[in-house]
Design a protein around this nucleic acid. Structure first.
Lengths: 344, 344
DNA sequence: CTGTTAGCGCGTTCAA
DNA sequence: TTGAACGCGCTAACAG
């Protein structure tokens, strides 16, 4: 088995020097259009393929961006990836995707691999961020954080307006007469969850809503965990007329729990989600009578687009000031919320 | 900004030669355990990181596998990826994921990138396979096809037993008394769709089911396209009592169409899916009263596992005989099928 | 516009 | 067990 042809082989076949052949193939520098044709012809005949590896070794640029996603099966993430791809692909950059499944070991492993492979940049979407990772990144390539960010604001960040989202939900519930609202937030290690909890605690009184720590739980962002959270809240207090869940999947868990206790939604209990994960055209018409969550819509594609732009900016200007980009959310009123009616 | 430390820097700091340091870091060849410690210490102090790029250039192995997925938001695919990762990760290989969205341009682009980056192998899941791609792959690294495969059996393949799946559905419908069954298959360019259509045509008579080409449509594997297909079938024939759709999402489209025409499922029309996409614990309890599709369950994780094993095998033995692995399916009876009852 | 030259960082002979 | 030397394939000066 012969080795793959390299630029020297092409040059030899074209009867020309290596560097001219290289210029012809890469498009950099001056090459006579006539000789360029000859070189391309020779390359085609040989089945020559440029080695991105050698190029990277030489230039320290890999034209590659690693993107870490917490959970690929959650429909909001593919949209973000797509948005990022839309801006990176035209720049000749390839997105390398990793599904971390919220596993910090996989997270570390992938970041390591990307560093070893000279990734030009990293986009971390909704990652839990142990110090080990941020430490690694501190000396590494440009990194942009999406949705969650590490503590010291040392990195570029793009995310939705969490405060506005919570306030919109509170306003909505308040108008419907809710006073006792259970809150299930995401875990402590999520900056997003911390922001939202802070917003809830700060804003609740302004909307005439009781802010009682007993009614505020922190759970993982998933169906099962928040379903259990709902069980706890409903057991703990008979006065709750609404529950704010931390995302749409989790809200479904809350609804399931409510129903299993004989509570109707929204007649007996109002439930809100967050992120609009089910607002896909397909879901829309899928179950005509399914619950239409009251939720906060996120500009998913735009989040991806802006993250990629921020990354490109930093690749070009590594010393630019750290950017923090907050994108507007959208309040979506569905049929899982209604007028408050005391439970007991 | 100084350049990143390399093996020479480490060697210098350890007071040792480059090659010894290299051996210490890579674990290849003999190194005194004492000097090894010293080298590792020096590396740590310098923040040294091995360059996968240089290593790949030197060895022609990148410890990287590219995996192409048609549609990442379809829940069956993450499972396949996970299965593959389970066997590849312990071998020190990294999976690089690409969502092709059924777009052959993206497909080609990613394959090209992977070739240029010396991927050790490729896994193509449910890809439509224009000749250009298979031609590219023919001279490339080991490739394994999943679900769909190119025409000449020149590549390793793993997929579910399509014939058994269709027969199981036919048997199920036949027992329920269905004679006029509409069939909506996947597109012509999908080997899976061709296999299933062939199985349907061959087996229908054996089950006392009419095989009329007028009742057999080929459509894209999606909600909208198959919903339209269902409209066509239902308009075309008043005798149809059941429709076999080509996957679960598509089946939902068929059901939606039926309902919009005032047909109840399964009382007036039985509908079957294929792939069990909604059979996730979360969906199970999500909508208590949602339709439970009668469908064919696929061994998703196992498909990924076997694909990865096949790939490893071929990487180690490039000349091994082409393998074709057919995995058993599972018949799942739901509540979208019932006794046949004439429509008109 | 073209050719010459010198590494990028590493793994791997081969001798010592 | 260690060290010296070479080259993987390419780009980027620089000189012509």
């Amino acid at each position: 088995m012969k080795r793959a042809p390299n630029i020297s082989d092409v040059a030899a076949r074209a009867g020309i020097s290596r560097s001219t052949a290289a210029r012809a193939m890469s498009g950099n520098g001056y090459v006579d259009s006539e000789t360029k044709k000859i070189v391309e012809q020779a390359a085609r005949e040989l089945g020559y393929r440029r080695s991105a590896i050698a190029r990277t070794l030489r230039t320290n640029r890999s034209d590659t961006v690693g993107i870490l996603i917490a959970d690929i099966s959650n429909p909001i993430f593919p949209r973000i990836v797509k948005g990022a791809d839309e801006v990176l692909a035209p720049e000749g950059m390839t997105l390398l995707l990793c599904n971390t499944e919220g596993d910090s070991v996989k997270q570390m492993a992938f970041v390591q691999k990307m560093l070893e492979r000279q990734a030009d940049g990293l986009i971390l979407v909704s990652q839990s961020l142990p110090e080990a990772v941020t430490a690694l990144l501190a000396g590494g390539p440009p990194s942009v954080f999406v949705n969650r960010r590490p503590d010291p604001d040392a990195f570029d960040y793009v995310g939705p307006d969490n405060v506005a989202g919570i306030e919109a939900l509170l306003a909505h519930l308040s108008v419907a007469g809710h006073r006792h609202v259970g809150y299930i937030g995401g875990p402590e290690n999520s900056s997003t969850a911390r922001e939202r909890l802070g917003a809830f605690q700060e804003a609740a009184p302004r909307f005439g809503i009781v802010s009682d720590p007993d009614l505020q739980l922190l759970r993982e962002y998933d169906y099962g965990a928040e379903r259990e959270g709902a069980a706890e809240l409903l057991t703990r207090s008979g006065r709750i007329t609404a529950i704010v869940a931390s995302n749409d999947m989790a809200a479904m868990g809350v609804i399931a729990e409510a129903r299993s206790r004989g509570l109707r939604v929204p007649e007996d209990l109002s439930v809100t989600g967050y992120d609009g994960a089910f607002r896909e055209p397909m879901w829309e018409s899928l179950y005509p009578d399914r619950p239409q969550l009251t939720t906060i819509g996120l500009p998913r594609r735009q989040i991806g687009v802006e993250a990629a732009r921020l990354l490109l900016r930093r690749i070009k200007a590594p010393e630019a000031a750290v950017a923090k980009m907050i994108l507007p959310i959208e309040m979506i009123a569905g049929n899982t919320t209604g007028p408050a009616r005391p439970r007991s």
